[in-house]
C-alpha cells in the first residue's frame, strides 16, 4: 500500500522534474526574489536615494523578513502557474484520459498529483532562501559588515509560512485548471484575479473603509497577514516590495492565527472542489 503510494507520487514528481516549465518558473521565482529583495534595494542603497537603514534588510540576519515579502506577492502568481501546469496540461495533452483508464481511480491519481505538487514547492522555498543567503553574504562582504545569521527557528517558521502561501496559490491554480479544463484560461483568469480583483480592491480598501469586510477573506490579505509577524509584509526595517513595490499591500491585516486557519480552510476547499470536479466530470 505504502509502496504503491510512494511509486505514484515518485512518478508524478518525475513528471514535474522533467518539465522545462517547472525549472523556468523556479528560475524566474528565484531571480524575482533576489531582484526585489537584494539587487534593486542594494542599487538604490548605493545610489543617491539610499538610506542607511536599507542595508540592514539585505544582511543575512534579516533573510526571513526580506524574503517573505515576495511570497504573497509574486510567489503567489508563480505558484498559481505551477499549479495550473501540474493539472491543466494533463487536460490539454489528454493524458488524464490515459491515466484514468489505468488501474487506480481518479482519486488516487489526483492525490498523487497533489502530493507531488506539495513536495515540488519545497525546492522553491529552499532555493530562494539559499540564494537569498548567498546574496546577503555577498552584500555583507561588499559593505564590510559582520555576518550574523538569524536563529534557526525563525528561518524554519519563515520557510513553512512561505511554503503555505505558495501551496494555497498553487491550489488556486489547480482548481482553475480543473474548472476550465486547460491552462490558458486558468492562468489568465488566475493572474487577473490576483492582480486586478484582489489587488485593486485591496488598494481601494486602504481609503474606503466599507471595503474592508470584502478584503478580509482575500488570499492576499491572509497571506500577507501570515508572514507579517515573521517580519514580512513590510514589518522589517528596510523598504520592501510589500510596501513600495508593484505588489504593495498596506492592509487591512487580520490576526495571524485567523490567517492560518483561513488559509488551511481554503486549501481543503480548493482540493475538495477540484477532486469533486475531476471525479464527477466526463473526460471527453
Amino acid at each position: 500500500m505504502f509502496r504503491r503510494g510512494f511509486d505514484r507520487v515518485s512518478v508524478e514528481l518525475f513528471l514535474l522534474r522533467r518539465r522545462m516549465a517547472t525549472w523556468v518558473l523556479l528560475t524566474v521565482w528565484t531571480l524575482l526574489g533576489l531582484m526585489f529583495g537584494y539587487i534593486v534595494p542594494y542599487v538604490t542603497y548605493r545610489g543617491d536615494d539610499g538610506r542607511p537603514n536599507m542595508l540592514e534588510a539585505m544582511l543575512p540576519e534579516q533573510i526571513t523578513q526580506t524574503l517573505l515579502d515576495g511570497f504573497p506577492f509574486f510567489g503567489g502568481a508563480i505558484a498559481l502557474i505551477l499549479g495550473v501546469l501540474a493539472v491543466g496540461s494533463e487536460l490539454g495533452w489528454d493524458t488524464l484520459k490515459t491515466l484514468f483508464t489505468q488501474r487506480p481511480g481518479r482519486g488516487v491519481v489526483f492525490t498523487a498529483k497533489m502530493a507531488a505538487l506539495a513536495i515540488m514547492l519545497v525546492p522553491f522555498v529552499v532555493s530562494l532562501f539559499a540564494f537569498g543567503a548567498i546574496a546577503g553574504v555577498v552584500i555583507a562582504r561588499l559593505e564590510g559588515v559582520d555576518i550574523i545569521w538569524p536563529d534557526t527557528t525563525t528561518v524554519i517558521q519563515g520557510m513553512l509560512a512561505g511554503w503555505l502561501v505558495l501551496a494555497v496559490w498553487a491550489l488556486v491554480g489547480v482548481l482553475l485548471a480543473v474548472a476550465t479544463r486547460g491552462t490558458s484560461l486558468a492562468i489568465g483568469f488566475g493572474i487577473l484575479y490576483t492582480l486586478v480583483i484582489e489587488g485593486l480592491i485591496s488598494a481601494l480598501a486602504g481609503s474606503v473603509n466599507q471595503l474592508e469586510p470584502i478584503v478580509d477573506p482575500f488570499l492576499r490579505a491572509n497571506t500577507y497577514s501570515l508572514v507579517r509577524p515573521l517580519g514580512g509584509a513590510g514589518s522589517g526595517t528596510g523598504d520592501s516590495a510589500a510596501t513600495d513595490g508593484p505588489g504593495a499591500f498596506s492592509g487591512p491585516y487580520v490576526d495571524e492565527l485567523q490567517a492560518l486557519v483561513v488559509l488551511m480552510v481554503y486549501m481543503v476547499m480548493f482540493i475538495g472542489v477540484s477532486a469533486w470536479l475531476l471525479r464527477k466530470r466526463d473526460v471527453a
Partner: peptide, 19 residues
C-alpha cells in the same frame, strides 16, 4: 495521449508504476 516531453519508455514507466 502521452506526455510529449517524455520518451516512450518513460511514458510506459509512468503507467507501469501507477499500475
Amino acid at each position: 495521449a502521452f506526455y510529449p516531453h517524455l520518451s516512450g519508455r518513460h511514458n510506459l514507466m509512468m503507467l507501469a508504476k501507477y499500475t
